[in-house]
Simulated assay, not measured.
Amino acid sequence: IMLDLHCDDEGLAYLYIHTSLWPHMADCAAAMGIDAVLLWSEDSSGTFEGASIMPYQNVPASVARFDRRVATTVEYRGMLDVDSGLAASDAGGLYRLLVTRGVIQDPSVPKASSFSGAVVPLENIEMMPSPKAGAILYDVKPGDRVNKGDRLATIVHAPGEAGGRTEVFAPQSGFILTRRSRRIIRAGEDLLKLAGDERSADARSGTLED
């Protein structure tokens, strides 16, 4: 079991999982109470998670044993999501994972079964770079469902001037996975991650961010 624990700016709780481990790891996502799973297939940047699972891609199934392996990057919501309630809930989720996978024997803890969250190919993620530098006025928050053409945010780049505000719209339908915590941004920096219903026109492989 390899868990690389992180958090995003503001976001849902989600996992990065290699396609060879899905749906084998659905029980893990359910045990941890995760909101969404991002499935990836290529690792061009040498991530910790990739280094843990890629060596098993070209070995016999009897050696790979993907049904027994757990390797994932865990994004525990946002940097400001720090309180005793979330800490207890997340710790309980990690404990359920260990019970579910047989690392710990504890009859008092039911093993997780089905995962009811969203499962999204990495190629469906829209990173939404800002067209201007300025202050951000968001219309959406993590977890919100949006339709193609919905306004996601307004960038105020020349306050009080005509044409000093630029609106950003959803390129496709989906839900908001994360958004930026700071409300000021440079041109080209990512405003948010939109988990789309379809493949992104700007689909990328490997990691979403450096």
Rank of each mutant, 00 (worst) to 15 (best):
I125R: 01
V140E: 10
F115R: 04
T166M: 12
V82Q: 13
F66R: 02
R151W: 05
V59F: 14
A87G: 10
G164P: 06
D81W: 07
L152S: 07
G102H: 07
S108Q: 10
L122H: 06
S89E: 13
E161K: 13
F175T: 05
R96M: 05
V82D: 13
T178V: 02
D83W: 15
G85F: 08
V140N: 10
A61T: 07
M127S: 06
L152W: 05
T72C: 14
G143Q: 07
G78C: 08
E75R: 00
R68L: 09
Y95V: 01
L80K: 13
D90Y: 04
A162L: 02
D139K: 08
D106A: 12
V109N: 10
G174W: 00
R69P: 05
P129R: 09
L98T: 07
R165I: 00
P60V: 04
F115I: 01
Q105T: 12
N124S: 11
A153S: 10
L80G: 10
N147F: 07
D106N: 15
V109S: 12
A153Q: 06
A64C: 09
A91I: 02
R180T: 03
S62I: 04
Y76L: 14
P171K: 04
L137A: 14
L80P: 02
R180H: 10
A88M: 11
A158Q: 06
G78I: 01
D83C: 15
G85L: 06
Q172Y: 03
V146W: 05
D150V: 00
Y95T: 03
R68C: 07
V119W: 11
A71H: 11
D81L: 05
Y95H: 14
T100C: 11
E126S: 06
A61E: 14
A87M: 12
V59M: 12
P110Y: 00
Y95F: 15
V103Q: 08
R179V: 03
R65F: 06
N147T: 09
G149C: 13
V59D: 11
D139M: 14
S84E: 14
L98F: 09
A87T: 13
A64N: 03
I155A: 13
P131D: 07
I125W: 00
V59L: 13
R179T: 08
K141W: 03
A87K: 09
R151Y: 08
V168R: 02
G92Q: 03
S173F: 03
V99N: 14
L177W: 01
P121K: 01
P131G: 09
L86H: 13
N124K: 01
V168K: 02
Q105C: 09
Y76N: 11
A87Y: 04
V59I: 15
D90A: 09
T73N: 15
P142C: 06
G149P: 11
K141F: 04
I104Q: 12
K148Q: 14
E161T: 04
A71I: 00
H157L: 07
E126W: 00
S62V: 06
S89T: 11
L137P: 08
P110E: 02
A88T: 14
A71M: 06
A118T: 11
N124P: 02
Y95L: 12
V59R: 09
G78E: 01
